[in-house]
Every structure is written in structure tokens, then in C-alpha cells.
């Protein structure tokens, strides 16, 4: 087996394993930890696929900032454990079966060769480097980029408004 394939299989196994770990853990903190691990492996995939910038963002923003936020909320709410049985347990087997069907469908598409994909080529030097991404981001995708900033602002304000306990009463003029 080619060394690349070995790397892929090992990393893929780790990714799937950590995802399953997230799914199965009883404790939400463990779930979060497994997810961070999963994100880290995916970041390595990004590196392999020639996307160093995205990999970096994945580690800093996703595995870093966002997951810290998750852990923070879990700790804040004391919501590590909560499993009270409800009347929806019949849903679990259905969901698993449907998931398997989805996988079979995807596998069939891949195996039958309906979607003929070209082989991955070796990219030119500098592909996916921050400089190249930046150039594209600030020329062709400038408007979406600016819109994104508005979106983030809106999200920030939204989060503040939603979590504010009571509107501080204004002084009457």
C-alpha cells in the first residue's frame, strides 16, 4: 500500500472514531473533546489536500474558539449529564436504519461510477496559500466578504439581546 493511503486510512479511522465517540459519550464534555479531536484530524486532511490556510482557520476558529464556547456553555449550564427517558426512543432505530440507507446510497454512487471524478492532480506551488486566498477574497469575493462582517455583527448583537436577562429600565426624561 502506498504511504499516502496508509496515512489516509489511519487519519480517517481516527476521524470516524472520534465522531462516533462524540455521538456515544454520555458526558457532554467528553463529546466536545471528541469533536475537537475530529476537527483536528480534519485539519490535517486539509493540509494534505493543499489548503494550509483553511487548516489553520479550522484549528484556531473551529477547534479553538467555537469549541471553547461550547465547553463554556456546558460548564455554565451544568449540562454534562442529562438523560431522562422520554417517549421518543422508538426514533433511534429508525434513525440508525435511515443513516445506513444514506450510506448505502452514497456508497452505490461512488461504486457504480455514476459520478466520474478526475484524479487529484498535483497542484502548482503556492496553491491554497494565504496570499492566494486573500487575493481571491478581496477581489472576486469582496462583497460576500463584507456581507459576512455584517452577519457577524448581527449575530453578536443577537446573542447579546437574547441572553440579556432584563432590559435595564431607562430613566424617564
Amino acid at each position: 500500500m502506498a504511504p499516502e493511503l496508509i496515512v489516509f486510512l489511519v487519519l480517517g479511522a481516527v476521524a470516524v472514531g472520534s465522531a462516533l465517540g462524540m455521538l456515544m459519550s454520555r458526558n457532554a464534555v467528553y463529546s466536545a473533546m471528541f469533536l475537537i479531536m475530529n476537527f483536528a484530524t480534519v485539519a490535517v486532511f486539509y493540509l494534505v489536500l493543499g489548503a494550509p490556510f483553511i487548516a489553520m482557520v479550522q484549528v484556531t476558529v473551529y477547534a479553538g474558539a467555537i469549541m471553547v464556547l461550547f465547553l463554556f456553555v456546558i460548564m455554565l449550564l451544568g449540562a454534562e449529564h442529562l438523560e431522562r427517558r422520554t417517549g421518543l426512543d422508538w426514533q433511534k432505530p429508525i434513525a440508525v436504519v435511515l443513516g445506513l440507507v444514506l450510506l448505502v446510497e452514497a456508497g452505490y454512487v461512488l461504486a457504480s461510477g455514476q459520478a466520474s471524478l478526475p484524479a487529484i492532480a498535483i497542484p502548482e506551488a503556492g496553491y491554497g496559500a494565504p496570499a492566494q486566498i486573500g487575493e481571491l477574497l478581496f477581489s472576486q469575493y469582496l462583497l460576500p466578504f463584507e456581507v459576512t462582517s455584517v452577519l457577524l455583527l448581527a449575530a453578536m448583537i443577537g446573542a447579546i439581546v437574547i441572553t440579556r436577562r432584563d432590559a435595564p429600565k431607562r430613566k424617564k426624561n
Binding site: 422520554t86 421518543l88 426514533q91 429508525i94 434513525a95 435511515l98 440507507v101 444514506l102 446510497e105 452505490y108 454512487v109 455514476q114
Partner: peptide, 25 residues
């Protein structure tokens, strides 16, 4: 209409799988 969000999500998922199945097969 059970009121459970997860239940609604399940039906969405059923829809996704069936449509995908129809498109493939």
C-alpha cells in the same frame, strides 16, 4: 405533529434519504 423538534428532523431526514434514493435509482 408530536411537538418534538427531533421528530420533525427525523421526517426531514426521511425526505432527504428518499429523494436521494429516487435520484440515484
Amino acid at each position: 405533529q408530536t411537538g418534538f423538534v427531533r421528530n420533525y428532523a427525523l421526517w426531514v431526514f426521511v425526505g432527504v434519504v428518499s429523494i436521494l434514493g429516487y435520484l440515484i435509482f
